[in-house]
C-alpha cells in the first residue's frame, strides 16, 4: 500500500491538520507501515458476517422532550479563546463556505 503526496495532502486537509512539506515523506512512511498491517484483514472471509458497529446489542434509549438545561453562557464562554458580546469570535467566515 503506497500513498502519494497528493493523497496525503488531501487526507491532511480533510482532517484539517497542517503538514509541513518537509515532514511529508517521513509521515508517509509511517502511515504506509500501518496500512500494511491492515492487509492482514484480506485473508479473513467475511462474506457471511454482518458489520459490528457496537459491542452492545441493545436499542437506543430516549429522553422526554423537556428543557433541562439553563443558560450557562458566561460559564461556558470562560474557556473561549476569543469571545465578545456572548459570541465566539473567529476569523471572518465567508458565507456559503464549507
Amino acid at each position: 500500500m503506497s500513498l502519494s503526496d497528493q493523497e496525503l495532502k488531501e487526507i491532511a486537509y480533510l482532517a484539517r491538520i497542517n503538514v509541513k512539506d518537509e515532514s511529508l515523506s517521513a509521515l508517509k512512511v509511517e502511515l504506509e507501515e500501518i496500512l500494511k498491517l491492515f492487509e492482514e484483514l484480506n485473508e479473513a472471509d467475511t462474506s457471511e458476517v454482518d458489520a459490528m458497529s457496537h459491542p452492545l446489542d441493545l436499542s437506543q434509549p430516549v429522553r422526554k422532550d423537556e428543557v433541562t438545561e439553563k443558560n450557562e453562557r458566561e460559564e461556558l464562554l470562560k474557556n473561549a479563546p476569543s469571545a465578545k458580546s456572548g459570541l465566539f469570535l473567529v476569523p471572518k467566515v465567508i458565507e456559503g463556505e464549507g
Binding site: 428543557v67 453562557r73 461556558l76 456572548g86
Partner: peptide
C-alpha cells in the same frame, strides 16, 4: 421544546449562546 440530543431550549430569537449547553 428541547434539542435533538440535548435538553437545551429551541426557542427562536434568544440572546446568542444562551440556549447552547
Amino acid at each position: 421544546k428541547s434539542k435533538l440530543f440535548s435538553g437545551a431550549s429551541t426557542d427562536f430569537g434568544a440572546l446568542p449562546n444562551t440556549q447552547a449547553c
